[in-house]
Design a protein around this nucleic acid. Sequence first.
DNA 1: GCTGATTCAGGGAGCGTTCCCACAAAACCG
DNA 2: CGGTTTTGTGGGAACGCTCCCTGAATCAGC
Lengths: 331, 331
Amino acid sequence: MRRPTLEAVATRAGVSKSTVSRVVNGEPTVASDIRDLVMRAVNELGYVPNPAARSLVTRRTDSIAVIVSDPPAGLVSDDPMFSTVVRAAGREFEAAGKQVVLMLAGSDDARVRARQFVAARHVDAVMLVSMHGADPLPAALATTGVPLVSHGRPAFWGATPWVDNDNVGGAAQAVRHLLERGRRRIATISGPLDMSAAQDRLGAYREVLSETGRRSIVAIGDFTRISGAEAMAQLLEDDPALDAVFAANDLMAIGAMRALRRAGRRVPDDVAVVGFDDIEAALYTDPPLTTVRSPMGEQAAASARLLLGLLRGEDAAPVILPTQLVVRESS
Amino acid sequence: MRRPTLEAVATRAGVSKSTVSRVVNGEPTVASDIRDLVMRAVNELGYVPNPAARSLVTRRTDSIAVIVSDPPAGLVSDDPMFSTVVRAAGREFEAAGKQVVLMLAGSDDARVRARQFVAARHVDAVMLVSMHGADPLPAALATTGVPLVSHGRPAFWGATPWVDNDNVGGAAQAVRHLLERGRRRIATISGPLDMSAAQDRLGAYREVLSETGRRSIVAIGDFTRISGAEAMAQLLEDDPALDAVFAANDLMAIGAMRALRRAGRRVPDDVAVVGFDDIEAALYTDPPLTTVRSPMGEQAAASARLLLGLLRGEDAAPVILPTQLVVRESS
DNA sequence: GCTGATTCAGGGAGCGTTCCCACAAAACCG
DNA sequence: CGGTTTTGTGGGAACGCTCCCTGAATCAGC
């Protein structure tokens, strides 16, 4: 009960393997009557090419690894991101006829396996998502010689191209907006400082404040909702008179709003809140969250396209996508 | 600059290909000194087996397709689910040494490609996620003879095993809870009726109400937040005196709470709200949402394990996981 | 010491493709 | 109309691995 092979189709159609191969691969150098003959045989037998055999000789697999640094457990900080990014990239790859192999590089063990997997040329290319600064994976993958792009600028990128959104510009916009609204004691909740997005957003916050001679008030979170609430509580303790907070992502902003309410502060009357990312949930908070829209889906799609270009032999330079302030009622 | 092959390792170690193959595959019938010799050669050359060549002869690929019915665009209803489910299943598969190939079966085109892909035996097995009732994919995949499980009970499942949570029991619990709280006019916001989860939840709602001689008040949503708000507005128009609503998932419940607030109703004073799923966001609504916890991650992990069992030749029966009412402040 | 069983390494066929090369037939050209 | 190019088809050698089979060496038993 073996599946039909090229040979079987050839016999059935009364032609050679070579001809069938040409037809199946859509080569134009086949007479149209023979092509029809072959196509009929293909359909009658239900022939489907064996990808293993094909990739053995072509050295292509037509599949691409999407490696997501997945925290061991519990930590679901980038949930909205995971879905948006994986879907957007997946759509782009599928449209190009590439299969998506998803790898969750959570544990060290998984990281080793991922590297092995890529080294074995099980995939033609790799898209890296949300690596922390200390992550050795980008460097390890670079040595395999497999085309590689990063969704988000990695801490050390060498020759790896990446696509990121304008974290610096977006954060600066957010802080300036708070200043324009007349806020004077503006705190920030930063993301983990081993991630470049967190660094950039914090840096821009500091930059804008120091330009205007104001003092930074900083707490560090880890991009989760809970950490946002904890950081907010800390900030209130550090400076009870603060009148605004810029959270480095929306999840932390949502946590912060919750902590503010619990502390009896009104948003935005007592404390204005601005987030970053514009995830769907930002629309549904009370009050709706002012935030910086980072086009995560587009960023992922752009990363995917960059990688596909690389595979076609084009060369790739880093891309920075613009962000945009979305003013709602929390500020 | 070709990567080293078995042959190269064999030459280097001064043994035959067969022996190297045995060592690489961990067969015990190799003298330990020879094994060491081979291992040294493997490490020196950086040898990694070619998976295409291997799978050509073994007829295994050690990879598993996770096919998610991805709506063409915009519709991101199952966002929290996507992340949780894909991650949980992914972890399970990776722990078993299987690769995860993610396919988004959004368009018809993508569905055809998915079927082709599976028919080509590019994967050893398939896990299906969140298919709508009318979806022809489960049936199409069943004909390929590839082991298959469904995360969630499909509309027509034939011999396909599945894992689901106890939608009927959970919904009944939710409605009884509202009755116990003294609510008398209990409406529901159902999910799309081509999904079995929506059917079950609606059915249980009707069942419990009719047992107690009460009338059903139904609006249909599509499991998105927006549709929940719209359905709620509709319900308020239909029956302004309603005092409770059971939404078939949390996203719609969140939308409903928003619509209620906009209509000037207090939750839970005027209208009690209960959701379903217990996504993370349910904790952060105002007031926090009473809901039915459905263990989505566990369900996905169970589906994955069921599939892995199938691959080991065990047989698989459908599994139903218990749900649990989580009472918070919205009811 | 001889036979028969056991252990372990090597040889080589085959997995299902692609793609280079050879070659026949048709088309073109002066 | 002979020679040269073009067009279309077939033959068959890889690709890198697994696994069956053969056979040499070691061991056990009497």
